[in-house]
Design a binder for these strands. Structure first.
Lengths: 353, 353
DNA sequence: GTTAGCACTCAACACCATCGAGTGCTAACT
DNA sequence: AGTTAGCACTCGATGGTGTTGAGTGCTAAC
């Protein structure tokens, strides 16, 4: 992860280690942490009174709060941010974990359609929170292959394969009965016409086609449908957000009350915002963390996202990541998301090479 | 809906109408209903004392309970069952609703892949509970079309179209570089060999193929992968359960505490049980209702399912339906599920004709 | 068979006292 | 100047108590 310049001034080392201790403790227990617990569990070499002074300072710096007077401290969103930016250990994922994840991808290496789903599932399982993934989606779709399969007299299935491996199936109703033979002929013509083209190119090519004769009209008619499919594909910012492991999120104590939980689910259906995040993440090419209220939509302010793009910048990109409560094990999440995204890069590259 | 023979003896009309009143009231308010409220809101022409006697009788008959002494009555699973079997008005869906649903299907008539998803979405929206749908899945897959598209030197995408419109994409790595031309030739051979066949037939046909020459080995190699794909497709009982409107279920007061809610989500991931239900539903060809504890899996005992098959018995069947709390508007649910399933039948028939 | 009357039950609610974890502050210490 | 012991203080959590009222079940009269 690229370290941003810190907006808040750096803290002295002792304050940082106490902040880190508070975060680590709170992340694993979900209980506000007090000064006594800190000196007892983390050998700080100072008394609880000193710790209290530092905690108070961290609080006035906006990195911690406490829910009420007689409770321990919990990190604020800014606190998590500071932690993630500067003091969290986001080194490489442990080799054992790497191997386990690689192994799981190896199991299904043949089904490219499933890779992004698998990524979400793996991220969910390793982090015990929700995993997210979108299929790699090109900025401008390129057609690789067009095929027409007869289904009945006047009904055919139009299959369009895009360069990135995505696939569209559209039913086409025909004005009059057409044999598979003619469909195949039309498909070959369209294939020659449109393969490798984007929507605009394909449209120009189609315009030059002779619309006469039964095959000509068929080609025209189906060609229009192909164009529509390409444009539709282009227009879809996020084709699909696959999620897994939502049950993990439901187990978090912060979502004990189901109204909070409901908002998490509503958040996942906020495609507009996820698309926006996708754009931002795709631009940077690195792991990005969005913490709690940093997310504009109100239903997102209780959750954090750790996202990374995969694919080829400028061509086709997708996103993998995790979604969980702001109280999340960020270093681990960042590590696995980073690793899975590089793995996905490899996979995509192998296809495209 | 086929009316089962009632297992409990029939009630007298007055008891039935009181049972119905209790259920209707409780379904809409989620509050236990007492004798006074019944006489006030439903013109029963008798005093609350009489109603109390009848309520007590219904309770000893196992159709009602009360959560505690000083609370009103709520229906038991058996009560709902009696209601659904005998006294609920499950007549045709109102023409207005029919039209609205038809209209929504009309919007996407070209994308058959999406029909079952749409069905779930529509069922969820009209009933304000979760909608479920599975794609129509044949008992024994028949291949309609095989295609091979070159992706890179030694990587090709194998596309298999099944008779029912389902589609499988598999990546095939090649021992040595192969041109698209040769891939096409191999695809044509495989297509001629396997189109219209089931797994067993296709295997026999493949065995007779001459495995010599570069094309021969290619055909063999890819053929094996086709077989594997067909078998895999056959083996999958439920290909996918698409659900929508889970947010509606989250709003039900019975799932206020998120541990109850968690079980609902766990229930949806119980593919084994859903597959079992699918078999039972597909066999009867009618709307089936599974109420609360009638479902064997413990995580299902708080929810009810209203399911109906669609497709062609013995060939390819899928299921549409709804899932919600046992306190559910059964007549409406049954009506819309029945209507949507007939609509899906029409759509599937149009493709197959 | 129906109904008025009534004693009874029990969840829900509000109130109150207790407790203890954890704080902030002050004064003493190094 | 920084650290620490000591201590008063705050406030959520816990648990006990009393009250209320919805709703029941039963009995006796109609």
């Amino acid at each position: 992860m690229a370290r941003r310049t810190r907006t808040t001034g750096s803290l002295d080392p002792r304050s940082e280690s106490i902040l880190r201790a508070v975060i680590e403790e709170y992340v694993s227990t979900a209980v506000p942490v007090g000064s006594n617990l800190l000196v007892a569990r983390y050998g700080l070499g100072v008394s609880s009174a000193t710790v209290r002074n530092i905690l108070a300072a961290l609080e006035s710096g906006g990195l911690l709060t406490h829910p009420h007077t007689s409770a321990g401290r919990i990190p604020t969103d800014a606190g998590y941010r500071y932690f993630v930016e500067g003091i969290a250990d986001t080194s490489q994922l442990a080799p054992v974990e790497q191997l386990m994840i690689r192994h799981q991808f190896g199991q299904v290496q043949h089904a490219s359609e499933q890779w992004f789903r698998l990524a979400a599932t793996i991220l969910a399982a390793t982090n015990r929170i929700a995993g997210l993934a979108t299929p790699a989606k090109p900025r401008a779709a390129h057609v690789r292959r067009i095929d027409l399969v007869s289904i009945s007299d006047r009904l055919a299935s139009l299959i369009i394969v895009f360069r990135e491996g995505a696939l569209r199936q559209v039913l086409v109703t025909l004005a009059e009965p057409v044999e598979q033979e003619d469909l195949t002929r039309a498909a070959v013509i369209l294939d020659g016409l449109m393969a490798g083209r984007t929507a605009a190119d394909a449209e120009r090519a189609l315009a030059r086609i002779d619309g006469d004769g039964p095959i000509g009209t068929l080609v025209r008619r189906v060609g229009e449908r192909v164009l529509a499919a390409i444009r539709d594909y282009d227009a879809t910012v996020i084709e699909e957000v696959f999620s897994d492991g939502l049950l993990h999120v439901m187990e978090a104590p912060e979502f004990e009350r189901s109204d909070k939980l409901r908002r998490v689910f509503a958040a996942l259906e906020n495609r507009a915002y996820l698309g926006q995040l996708l754009d931002r993440v795709a631009g940077t090419g690195a792991v990005q963390v969005f913490i709690g209220a940093e997310n504009a939509p109100p239903e997102m302010r209780d959750v954090s996202l750790v996202l990374a793009p995969y694919g080829e910048p400028g061509r086709a990109v997708g996103v993998v990541g995790v979604l969980g409560p702001t109280r999340m094990a960020y270093p681990q999440a960042i590590g696995t998301v980073r690793f899975v995204s590089t793995l996905m890069n490899e996979l995509v590259h192998n296809i495209d090479a």
